[in-house]
Amino acid sequence: MDQKKKWHEKLYCHLGQYFLIEELLYKKKTAYQKVMIFKNSIFGKVMVIDDIVQTTERDEFIYHEMLTHVPIFSHGSIKNVLIIGGGDGGILREVCRHKNIENITMVEIDIDIINLCKKYFPNHSKNAYQDSRLKLIIDDGLNFTKKTKEKFDLIISDSTDPVSCGKNLFLSEFYFNCKNCLNKNGIFVAQNGVFFLQKNESILTYKNLKKHFCDTRFYQANIPTYYGGIMIFAWGSNNTELYKNNLQNIKSRIKHTKLAFNYYNAKIHMSSFYLPQYILNILDES
């Protein structure tokens, strides 16, 4: 591939964004997926899997903070966390910042993604893989959740889009397994793409989650890397009260941890559960 070549993301057939590849750093196929890593003057280093942008240096903090801290501060007493996917290490980094968390299990299907991100995206994990609380398992998330006897307070599914090996993490069976892996007041969250352009996938997720959780909803964040509008995150719990926090409660929990963030804060937390009306209308009809 020539340097400084325009590359077109392939997630959507008829539209999408272009990235200027200013320096190609890596391009090979692992045992599971095609991987490309390149430099871009706006987004920094960019990782592409199966022709779909997965993460960038410039705005990864938005995605990782929102997928991690919204459920952690909503719950208020997370001790055991399961991360499915997340080989870039960003979710692990954010989870490890919470010193009250006792055990962290991470299940990633592709060891090559972990190793590549340690090399090309070291700030994503910031040495979180060295945390003594971590148990790293190389396995398919669907298989692990089906077989494990462990219980968790929080499950974070940080998957690719529902293509290739990421498909298993959007199945009703996977959500059922996750429900069975959660403690009584546990929370399941997952990335669910850009609703405006992935409406059908979001509706399917909503229907499948509702089969297994009493409380099913989405929350949102605006992440420049992901083309097409706001990104939504799926939420499932059998405690219908956990998302109903007041602002002062969230502020107090954040203050107690003494953590600082680049995107997440108490007001962002509260507002993230308020979705645009077009999304609410479609979900009500589904």
Score class of each variant (00 low, 15 high):
215 D>G: 06
206 Y>R: 00
217 R>Y: 12
213 F>K: 03
211 K>V: 09
211 K>Q: 14
222 N>T: 11
215 D>F: 13
235 W>Q: 02
223 I>L: 05
215 D>K: 15
223 I>F: 05
232 I>R: 05
236 G>I: 00
220 Q>W: 09
236 G>N: 04
243 Y>M: 14
231 M>Y: 05
224 P>E: 04
219 Y>P: 00
225 T>D: 06
224 P>M: 09
216 T>Y: 00
236 G>C: 01
231 M>R: 01
222 N>C: 07
226 Y>P: 07
217 R>N: 13
236 G>R: 00
221 A>F: 06
207 K>I: 06
213 F>C: 13
232 I>N: 15
233 F>A: 09
207 K>A: 11
230 I>C: 14
208 N>I: 00
232 I>D: 12
230 I>K: 14
215 D>M: 14
216 T>H: 02
241 E>S: 11
215 D>V: 02
229 G>P: 08
212 H>W: 11
221 A>P: 02
234 A>Y: 02
226 Y>A: 02
205 T>Q: 02
216 T>R: 04
224 P>S: 07
234 A>C: 08
211 K>S: 13
237 S>D: 08
206 Y>E: 03
212 H>S: 10
238 N>I: 13
215 D>R: 13
238 N>Y: 04
241 E>A: 09
218 F>T: 01
210 K>N: 12
229 G>A: 15
221 A>N: 05
210 K>V: 01
229 G>T: 08
231 M>H: 04
241 E>M: 10
205 T>M: 13
219 Y>F: 06
211 K>G: 03
215 D>L: 10
243 Y>H: 15
213 F>D: 12
218 F>P: 04
239 N>K: 08
218 F>L: 01
233 F>I: 08
206 Y>M: 06
243 Y>F: 13
227 Y>E: 13
219 Y>W: 00
239 N>M: 07
231 M>A: 12
223 I>D: 10
217 R>H: 12
206 Y>C: 01
223 I>E: 09
224 P>R: 04
214 C>V: 10
234 A>Q: 04
219 Y>M: 00
209 L>A: 06
232 I>V: 15
206 Y>F: 14
223 I>S: 09
227 Y>C: 08
231 M>Q: 12
238 N>C: 09
222 N>S: 10
237 S>Y: 03
228 G>L: 11
231 M>K: 11
230 I>E: 12
243 Y>I: 10
242 L>D: 00
230 I>V: 09
210 K>A: 03
238 N>F: 10
227 Y>T: 09
216 T>F: 03
230 I>G: 12
236 G>T: 00
217 R>K: 14
234 A>K: 05
208 N>T: 07
218 F>K: 00
229 G>Q: 12
236 G>A: 02
205 T>N: 08
228 G>N: 02
216 T>M: 07
232 I>K: 09
239 N>Y: 06
226 Y>L: 06
215 D>T: 03
223 I>N: 05
209 L>S: 10
206 Y>V: 00
227 Y>S: 15
220 Q>M: 11
214 C>E: 15
213 F>G: 12
218 F>Q: 05
208 N>G: 07
216 T>C: 14
241 E>P: 03
215 D>I: 04
224 P>F: 08
239 N>I: 11
218 F>D: 06
240 T>N: 07
240 T>K: 12
